[in-house]
Design a protein around this nucleic acid. Structure first.
Lengths: 206, 206, 206, 206
DNA sequence: AATGAATGAGTTTTCATTCAT
DNA sequence: GATGAATGAAAACTCATTCAT
């Protein structure tokens, strides 16, 4: 796979896995509070439960931590969405997917926030990789929308498919980004309902 | 007004104005390239056309620069939107407002990008101020939508008004955020048309 | 000139000159005691009489300090040797040159020691530059010897000229290197006398 | 003997011998490339063919490795020179010794280079020991020269004996130090011939 | 008002050494 | 005896901020 690798000087793969999980958990917590730049590597180590020396046994640079965080988020997203039943162009299937996606963001909104605010700090190649993942996300919804268009369940032009897919993805992110404004007035269920209503009202053939 | 002040040791108000304009222009360019944290005060001074010493005659801390940038963006947004003719609950008026807003974002997408990616680095009070400005933006569209609801031009529940206003604001930001994906396929005109179509199709009373 | 430049963020050339002199003096003293690698940049700064921040206003990396030290030594050597009256192939002239050179090394033996023990730590390009300077030194004596050979004052084959020149240069360095052994038994004057005697006894035509 | 000991936590003397040989071989190679300070203990272990943990079973500190390298070089030098037939004050015998010594340096010039460039990094007591070895080297040639003086084969004053002995030793080292300059023009045989010619021309009674 | 040299706390990163397995 | 993960002191270098000129 063309997965970007983060070099570690530790050999035991299981240990790497374990330590990196600790690291990601600690880092997300920290980045959420103070952002990537304001968090020091020493703080990351501490939040992860080990020493600064140990931290550097599992990464090469501070940016690697950010990459690992972003990568793990996308992996979780991918895992949870690919567990969906295959869709055959039904609006219902699309709705299930959107539902899953929005709930996922609600569950992981800290992680999402971190990723979206900090990913620009990734080195070039890592940024590329993250953008690719994001495009896959959009593509997933495009294909679902497309299937619905083909099956006739949605009246939607090709032009609209792209934007609608972005729309779905961005509205999801909005729930994470605008927590401070939205959580006061709506539950995630409200939000999903209103969003899908609005989306479909325009798209469903009368 | 409770406008947050940035202290300057220079007395001449005109000079302050002039130097800060230089500063904002330089800073936006720089932040766009490397982000707020990676840009040094020396670089900001250089990009602004004066020395580091002079820079500090017009601000107190580096964060002041970021605040000035964010503040100036909102001021421009405010100026351009408040120039609109007063609306009396017509869809057409709403459409004009959206149009203005989206074009504004298109014109200033660099600035918007910078503001959204970096505003979390503002000190507490400045962040508060910026969020307040953002809420005003949402409120503007809320009032426009509300007027339309009251006049009967839009079938829209009170619950929907809040989310629709956020929706409009976020879709505008999306044009700036997702330039890399959207500019390939759409012009700003396409984008506005598709967005407003989608928005209104669901909302306009039959 | 193809002199390798060390970048400074300070603009005032006179100040650069002055600060670098302080730096070289401090660094030589320190390197003599503990060597280049064991001397920390903080110690170098302190020994130079300024703060670590100021040190880095005048250099880019620690290796720059070493380069400046080596460069300044060669410049002094060059200055002192090029002040010699032009030689026209007399043994006497050669003797004056050797005399000068050996005294020079005696005066600067600390600096020489540092340079020879640490120059391998220079980055590639700087090492190149230093070796070039060293070759010039050898070449100087080669040309003096050559002139003596041509004028008939010395019976010396072309093959011998190169080695004899190296010999002179190395014997000079030996005085610095082996201080611990030689200074007990000889003064610099003794040393010069014995060395030149030995050199010439073989070379002077009967 | 007052041989400085390097403590090992391993009991088996044969194993110690074997592992240290591996270590010296690996270390010389590494030090040649990057110098003592730039070589890490991990790299030394790797170059020696075992783990960092094992390395520390056979030494106490990194400096021990350097000491072992220097010590082994001198032992080899000692072994090869003490194999010479006992001299009875003949110039021929002296010449054989010089020949042996120079060839030895030619064979081991990497090791010599490493030793001379890095020995200053030895801890005090180890440095002392190495210098003592070096003095023995000089003393060897002093006694050979002395014998020749006594037997009348060389016209050489007591004053000259010390310097001439140093001279021989240093000229040998010069062949290692100045490889980059000398190897282009001379073979080791040329070099020995020219050096001894020059040495003896002055010293041999006509 | 403008300049830019000076400062030093704070940052990332390295690496010799230890010690449980 | 061998391994390699863990440690943290110490290193090089940065940069926001100050202040004398």
């Amino acid at each position: 796979m063309n997965k970007r690798e983060v070099k570690s000087s530790v050999k035991d793969e299981n240990l790497i896995e374990k330590r990196r999980e600790q690291m990601i958990r600690g880092a997300v917590k920290l980045f959420k509070e103070k952002g990537f730049h304001r968090a020091t590597t020493r703080e990351i180590a501490k939040a992860s439960g080990f020493s600064i020396g140990t931290l550097y046994e599992y990464i090469r640079t501070k940016e690697d931590v950010l990459y690992l965080v972003c990568d793990s988020i996308y992996n979780e997203v991918h895992d949870r969405l690919s567990a969906l039943p295959t869709q055959e162009g039904t609006v219902e299937g699309l709705q299930v997917a959107i539902n899953q996606y929005y709930h996922l963001i609600d569950d992981m909104s800290d992680e999402f926030l971190v990723m979206y605010q900090e990913s620009k700090s990734l080195p070039k190649d890592a940024l590329q990789y993250v953008l690719k993942k994001e495009m896959e996300m959009v593509a997933l919804f495009e294909s679902l929308l497309d299937a619905c268009a083909k099956s006739g369940e949605l009246r939607i032009s090709t032009e609209q498919v792209g934007i609608a897919a972005h729309h779905i993805v961005v509205q999801g992110q909005m729930w994470a980004f605008r927590r401070w404004a939205l959580h006061k007035s709506y539950t995630i269920e409200d939000y999903i309902r209103v969003q899908t209503d609005q989306l479909f009202r325009g798209l469903i053939g009368k």
